[in-house]
Every structure is written in C-alpha cells, then in structure tokens.
Nucleic acid binder design. Structure first.
Length: 706
DNA sequence: TCAGTTTGTCATTAT
DNA sequence: CGATAATGACAAACT
C-alpha cells in the first residue's frame, strides 16, 4: 500500500501514539504530553503533527492545508510535506475503510488517521509513513507477521500473547515503583531474551548518549520542574478547600495542561528509541524489543511476548480508550485532585523512568495526562463519550470498573440493585439499555463471566470481536484475573466471587424481580458472605453509592442543603444512573429521618397525652376532694343556718304574743340590712317574679346578639 | 414458632 | 411548581 494521507482529526493524535505504543504490546498509562513531540527528530511528520496539535509552529518542511469536506471523517486539516499535492487518485475513505476491514483487523478505525494507521500497519506498508511513524509501522508490520503466529503458538505461560500480558505489567508492585535499569527488568523466559536484551541495551545506551537526547532531556527536565512547581502550588492551594471549592483551582490547572504548559512525563526513552533507530535497522525486530524501563519490562515476562501480534496490539488502543472512559466512577469530575485520593486502577500503565513520585503516581488516570482527552471529557458527559461506541459496552465497563475498585465485587454491584418487589428499593431511572440483559443472560462461560466482571481488557476484545467480526481463538487468555489482584491497587478485591454472576448487566428495574440478597432495609442476608466486614456495616444506600462510585457520602447527600445539592449535581459529571441514585438516596435519607422524627414526635405526643391524662386524673381527684369538702362545709352551714333560723323563730312573737310558725313565715333581709318577717307565699311569688325578669332579660340579650 | 416491636420504605398529602 | 416535611401503611428484621 502506497497510500499515505495522515489526516489529523480529533483524537487522531492520541490514536497515533496509542497505536504506536500498542504495537509494542504495551499496556499504557501515559502522561501523553504534546511537548514530547519536541523529543522527536526534527522534520518528521509525527513531530510536526504533534506540534500542530500542540498549537505551536511546525517545521518548515511541512505545511498545513485545509481539507475539503470529507464526509464523516471529521478532519479539518491535513499536514503534508511542502509542495505535496493531494493525490487525486487516492482511494476514497470508503475504500480505505473496506481495505482495513478486509484485513480482519479487530479495530474499528474511526478517523482517517486510524484507518490509515491500521491499514498501513496491517498491510505491512513499511514506507507508508514518515519518520517515527514509518519506523513504527515498519517494525510493527514485521512484528505482525511474527506475532500473529507466535501469538497463537505461544508457549503456555510464556506470554507470547500480549493479551496475557495484563497479568504481568502490574504484577510486580515493587518493581513497578522502582526506576530500575531498563533491561534489568526484562525477564529471560524465552531463551533468546538475554541476547536480545544485550542488543537492546546497547541500542538504548547509544540512544541515551546522543546529543539529541541530551538536548531534549534538558528541555523536558526544565519543563518538568516548571510543571511540578506549578502542580505543587496548585495542590497546596487546593488542599485546604472542599472538593467543590477546589474545583476552580484544579480546573485552571487543567486549562494549563490543555495549553501544553504543564509537562510532567517523559517518554524520551521510548520515543528516542523509536525515532532514533534507522528504519532499516528496525526491520526484523518488533517494537516490543525496545528495552523499556520500569513496569513496562516488568510486564514482559517472556521474550516471546515481544513479538507483537497486531490484533492484540491494536486492541490495546481500544483499551486505552476505554480507560479514558473509565475515569473512575465514570464520573468526569473536573477536580482531578480529589480523584487521586481514591484508589485508582493502574489499568494501562507505562511508567517512565522518572523518579518523581508525582510523575509516577500509580493508577493515575489517563484523563489527567491527556490534555485533549481531558478537554473532551470536561465538555462532555459520559453519555456523550459513548457517542460512537456501543453504550452497552461502556455501561458494562463502568459497572466493572466500579466492581474492580475498592474491593467491591461485581456480584454485589448487581445485587445492590435487586429488590424483592416493586415497592421497595430504588426507583432508579431505567436509562440502562435493556439489551444488556440479553447479553448477560446469554454468557455462561467462565471466561465470559470474567470478562463481564473484572477484565476490562477482555471485554474490549470481546466486544470488538463482535463489532468487527474478527475472532480470538483463545478467549480463555482474556481472563488474566491475576494481574489485578497482583497489581496491588486493591488488595481486598474479591474477584473470586465474580466469575459466574452476570447480573451486573441487568438494569435495576429488571433486577428487582430477581432474588433479593439484600433485605428491604439494607441488612445483608445471603449476600453477607460476599461482603467484607467493612461492607457489612454499610447501609444499602451506602453500598449502592459505593458501587456506583458516588463521589459523596450518603450523609453528605442527605444533609447537604438543596442549593449545594443541585449545584453539586450540575458541577459533577454524573451519569443518569448516578444522579438517579443520588436523588433516591437523598429522598430516602430525608424520608428516613422524617419517619424517625415522625415516630419520635408521635411517641412524644403519646407520652404527653399520657401525662395529661395523669394530670387530669389527679386534678379530678383533687376537685372531688374539694367538692366533698365544700359540700361538707355547706351542710354544716345549712345546719347552722337551720339552727339559727329556729333559734330566731323560737324567740319571735306576734302581736298577740304567740310564737311565729317557721313553716308559714320566713326571714327576709332587705338591702338596708333590716330583717323582715314575711309570709312564705309572698317570698315564693317574689322569687318567681325575679326569676321571670331575669329570664326575660336573658332572652333580650340573646336576641340582641343574634 | 409466634407475637410484639423496630425500622426502612413508599405513597400521599401538607407546607 | 419543586423540594421537603409529615404521616399512614406495609413489610422485613429483630426481640
């Protein structure tokens, strides 16, 4: 294939480098700083492309021309040698894509650059690229030929298949941290390894002593110092601030990163080796032979692994992309500082030999180091990121990423959303694609189970296989279950529980009809055996929040004022599922508190009523006693009055001197204090008249009121 | 094993 | 109109 048109497009530069490094069979976690282009030999296409992406001037050897409208490929400009005239006979994109697909490469080219790279590499087009790219393509093409065969014929455990490599790059945690000699880390598993290592070490040393390297190293080290200083200042500022307050600071730092002024990583070894090797001298060896420092070589457990299988290597690119999407929690939060406080997954990791701990943060997320990627992430939701790829894949990946972090297994992730009936648990938004259910129910093999739960890389292979129509003859190799537990980034990971359960695919609403490992109230039942002691103490919502990597505590979610809560939701890039869960957690939490308050209030009311009853009963008894005393006093008074009455009448005499009969007469006191003896008939009639008057007056008053 | 209690949750209504 | 509080009702866990 002689067709060469490196078109730039969004992400094309990333893909460039990703593929180049993937061709080495490496698992990558790069601080891919565009300043690294300065390390490339001058007047090479890749260097100028990077310079272009970086926003700086390109070398005079190349020029940038606007692209004609190219449907669907999204490119805006092309970089080409000066005086280069676009080949009118160049095959159209459709044809190029068909050619790529015809190669059976399990990789979906999404841009012209992708297609070109895949095409040129897969077709063995050694002269189809310039400079580093050409060397990479050439070497990888050689590696492909050997790798495709050796990959499938690799000795068991020999690591001929880079897909098995995941078990090794991160396996040696101690070695990973140590900036060891590049070749010292290369194991001698294949017999030829020692010889190759010698050759490679010589090459590497020669490279290290080149003037170009010194110049570049000096330049990069100065940039490192500058960026480190800037980072330290930023982190000092952020340290004392809450997450949401620190966001702005971090964001500004990210802006600097985007502007290319924040350099933190060096890949000079890799690029120097790649770019310094004469193209011809690279033929016959694969990029995997490059002696790389640190964990890169840690992962190379066999020299056979250095023979790169194109299909395997290219697929790493997809893993890299997934890793970007797998920014922890699938929460594209602007505050990357806060992110680093959580255990991260050093999924794709390439440690440079730098000794700075900040630069070698294990598991640091790709998004921190890929400015343009970060730029996209900061402007897109996770759903936006899923634009071109099957959303199901990434939903699964997200769940798996949640499951693989912080010792949380995927079975729990799935079961967290299970409910016995429809009136309990979450009313989660059913944004999950229902097709996941079908997937989950149709996968039965152990390997597929492992794919589903813990091995993101395997998933990517798996899904790519389905997407592209390629095939992986040994899917069991896609289950490097060991590499995660060995990598030391989550020691309590309970992968042993996740092999066969596939329910994590299920959307919550579908899961609700399944068996219920959790009680309605968050108390573990059967699931308790799957949970460690820490998880057992968590409530259901806490476990759910943990499973979905909600970046806030349940208490925080519940107690946060509504304004802070809404602003929090808007400031953090949360999936619909996360937002739904957060709102449910808040609603349930508040309702729980309200229910407790309600019951407490009800109890208080009951207690108060009981007290009132007691008080009233006591008061009633008191009143009874008082009434009895009053009655007693009244009776005494009556008796006294009666005695007095009779005493008075016994002394009274009428005009004839006869005693006055008390049954016929009564004593009546007048207003002036005089006492009159009045016949009883008059007294009773007078009483009746008074009563009638009073009654009349009362009626008049009542009528007036009406 | 059963009855009573506690607790979380949902649905509904009120604020 | 949305968020929250209040509360009845229900069910599961607990005692």
């Amino acid at each position: 294939m002689k067709y060469l048109k490196p078109w730039w497009s969004d992400g094309g530069g990333l893909l460039h480098l990703t593929i180049l490094l993937s061709l080495a069979g490496l698992r990558l976690d790069l601080d891919l700083d565009l300043d690294l282009c300065l390390l490339l030999p001058p007047h090479t296409l890749l260097r100028d492309e990077l310079l272009l992406l970086r926003g700086g001037p390109t070398s005079p050897a190349y020029a940038l021309s606007p692209l004609p409208a190219s449907g669907g490929w999204g490119s805006a400009h092309q970089l080409h040698p000066k005086g280069w005239d676009p080949d009118p006979a160049a095959p159209p994109e459709g044809q190029l894509l068909r050619e790529v697909r015809a190669l059976g490469v399990p990789f979906i080219p999404r841009t012209r650059v992708d297609a070109w790279l895949v095409h040129s590499v897969a077709a063995g087009d050694a002269d189809g690229a310039h400079g580093l790219l050409g060397a990479a393509a050439a070497s990888s093409a050689g590696g492909v030929g050997a790798g495709v065969d050796s990959g499938s014929q690799a000795a068991p455990g020999g690591g001929g298949d880079p897909r098995a490599a995941p078990s090794s790059p991160l396996a040696a945690g101690e070695e990973e941290k140590a900036p060891a000699e590049p070749t010292a880390q290369v194991p001698d598993a294949g017999g030829r390894a020692s010889e190759e290592n010698e050759v490679l070490r010589e090459r590497h040393e020669a490279v290290d002593h080149s003037s170009q390297h010194e110049e570049n190293e000096h330049r990069v080290s100065a940039q490192k110092e500058k960026s480190l200083q800037q980072k330290n200042e930023d982190e000092d500022k952020i340290a004392d601030k809450p997450d949401w307050e620190a966001e702005k600071t971090t964001e500004s730092r990210n802006e600097r990163h985007l502007n290319g002024t924040d350099t933190s990583f060096s890949l000079e070894d890799l690029f120097q080796l790649l770019s310094s090797q004469p193209e011809n001298s690279l033929e016959g060896i694969s990029l995997g032979d490059i002696p790389l420092p640190g964990s890169i070589n840690d992962g190379m457990t066999s020299s056979a692994r250095y023979n790169v299988n194109l299909s395997q290597a290219v697929s790493h690119d997809v893993n890299l992309q997934e890793a970007m999407l797998l920014c922890p929690d699938n929460t594209f939060r602007r505050d990357q500082v806060a992110r680093t406080s959580q255990p991260q997954e050093p999924f794709l990791q390439l440690n440079s030999h730098t000794t700075n701990s900040e630069q070698t943060r294990p598991g640091t997320n790709l998004t921190e180091f890929l400015p343009f990627v970060d730029n996209q992430m900061r402007n897109l939701t996770s759903e936006d990121f899923l634009h071109d790829l099957d959303i199901n894949i990434f939903d699964e990946i997200n769940l798996m990423s949640w499951a693989t972090e912080e010792g949380f297994d995927a079975m729990e992730v799935s079961q967290l959303f299970e409910k016995p009936d429809s009136d309990s648990g979450l009313s989660l938004n059913s944004s999950h694609n229902s097709t996941s259910v079908t997937k989950s129910n149709t996968s039965h093999s152990v390997c597929e189970g492992a794919i589903g739960y813990s091995d993101l890389e395997s998933l990517s292979h798996h899904d790519l296989e389905g997407a592209v129509g390629g095939c992986y003859p040994e899917p069991s190799k896609f289950c490097p279950m060991g590499h995660r537990s060995d990598s030391g980034f989550h020691g309590d990971l309970a992968f042993q529980h996740v092999f066969h359960n596939h329910t994590y695919h299920l959307q919550p609403s579908a899961l609700e009809s399944n068996s219920e490992p959790f009680s309605r109230h968050g108390k573990p039942q059967k699931l308790s055996r799957y949970l460690n002691d820490t998880d057992k103490n968590l409530s259901r919502d806490e476990r759910r929040a943990k499973a979905l990597h909600i970046p806030f505590s349940v208490d925080e979610i519940v107690r946060m004022p509504v304004d802070s809560f809404n602003s929090m939701l808007s400031r953090y890039y949360l999936t619909d599922l996360q937002v739904s869960l957060i709102r449910d957690i808040r609603r349930r939490g508040k309702n729980k508190v309200a229910a407790q308050n309600c019951r407490r209030r009800k109890l208080d009311i009951i207690l108060n009523l009981e007290d009132d009853v007691c008080n009233l009963q006591a008061k009633k008894e008191t009143l009874k006693r008082e009434r009895a005393q009053c009655n007693k006093a009244i009776n005494i008074m009556k008796q006294k009055l009666h005695h007095l009455y009779h005493d008075v009448f016994s002394r009274l005499r009428d005009d004839e001197g006869r005693p006055v009969n008390p049954n016929q007469y009564a004593l009546q006191c007048s207003h002036d204090g005089s006492v009159l003896i009045v016949p009883k008939e008059l007294v009773t009639s007078g009483h009746k008249k008074e009563n009638q008057k009073r009654k009349r007056k009362r009626e008049e008053i009542e009528d007036g009121v009406r």
